[in-house]
Simulated assay, not measured.
Amino acid sequence: MDPRISFVTLVVRDLARSRDFYLSGLGWTAEVDVPGEVVMIRAGDKLVLSLWQEDAAVAELGPIGRGEGALPFTLAHNVDSPEGVDAVLASAREAGATITADPVTRDWGGYTGYFADPDGFRWEVAYNPGPIGQSVL
């Protein structure tokens, strides 16, 4: 099996709110938009971010569990400069995100901060000057 991720699906409580955040707030474009069910956004050459309405997802996945605190994973949006990190975090805040960690210079040489979308999914916004960081730009 080739190492590959084709879709990242976020099961959201209120699809209309999430749609508004990602499309109107962040300015992203939907490739598929089925009201009350799913919004799919091209996030890379061969990667789609899917927002799936929770009650629609339960029929296929079964019960959805949510607890207190951050979910045990993050998503990342890499940019080409520290100033880009600040700009993306400002845009996310304007769109209604909660900044959960102000940007700081990390020990490994990068500059990162975090925001939470309306459902609490954590997004790292990162400038990573190393080879792996530059390879995703």
Rank of each mutant, 00 (worst) to 15 (best):
P82E: 02
D20W: 02
V39R: 01
R122G: 07
T100F: 06
V34N: 10
G96S: 10
D2Y: 12
K46M: 11
T9A: 10
D33P: 04
I99R: 11
L75C: 11
V104I: 15
A116H: 00
M1P: 11
L26W: 03
V8N: 05
A97P: 07
H77T: 02
V85F: 04
I41W: 01
V32R: 10
D45G: 14
A90C: 14
A90Q: 08
A43N: 00
L51W: 01
A16D: 15
V12F: 05
G113L: 04
G110S: 12
L49Q: 06
D117M: 08
A87F: 06
A101K: 06
Q134Y: 04
W52K: 00
V85L: 09
R106T: 15
D55C: 14
G109V: 05
Y111E: 12
L23M: 11
A95M: 13
W28V: 02
L10P: 01
A116G: 08
Y114D: 05
R42N: 10
A57G: 09
K46H: 15
T29Y: 09
Y111M: 07
D14H: 05
E31Y: 09
R106K: 13
A97E: 00
V34I: 14
T29E: 13
V34Q: 15
G65C: 06
L10E: 06
A16H: 06
G36Y: 10
M40R: 07
Y114A: 01
V8C: 12
E37K: 14
P103Y: 01
G130P: 06
D14S: 03
V58Y: 10
A59L: 14
D86I: 11
A43D: 05
Q53S: 13
E94H: 14
V32K: 13
V34E: 08
E124Y: 08
L23H: 04
E94I: 09
N128P: 11
Y111V: 02
F121M: 07
G69Q: 00
V85A: 08
A92W: 01
M1E: 11
T9W: 05
A101N: 07
L89P: 05
S135L: 11
V11P: 02
V58A: 14
S50W: 04
R19N: 06
G36A: 06
F73V: 02
G25F: 04
D20F: 03
A43G: 02
R106A: 10
V38E: 00
P72K: 09
G133K: 01
N128C: 07
V38T: 07
V125F: 02
V34W: 05
D102C: 07
D33Y: 04
A116E: 06
L137G: 00
Y22R: 03
P129K: 04
V34K: 12
P103Q: 04
D102Q: 15
V11R: 04
A16Q: 11
Y127L: 02
T100V: 15
G113E: 01
L71D: 07
L71Q: 15
L10K: 03
I41D: 00
D80Y: 12
G67I: 00
V32G: 08
G130A: 14
Y22K: 02
D86G: 07
G113F: 03
F21R: 03
A87P: 08
Q53I: 08
T29K: 13
A76M: 07
P131Y: 08
M40Y: 09
F115S: 04
Y22S: 00
R93I: 04
T29P: 03
G96Q: 02
G65I: 00
V136Q: 02
W52N: 04
R42I: 10
P129E: 12
L47S: 10
G109H: 03
L49P: 00
D119Y: 03
S18G: 10
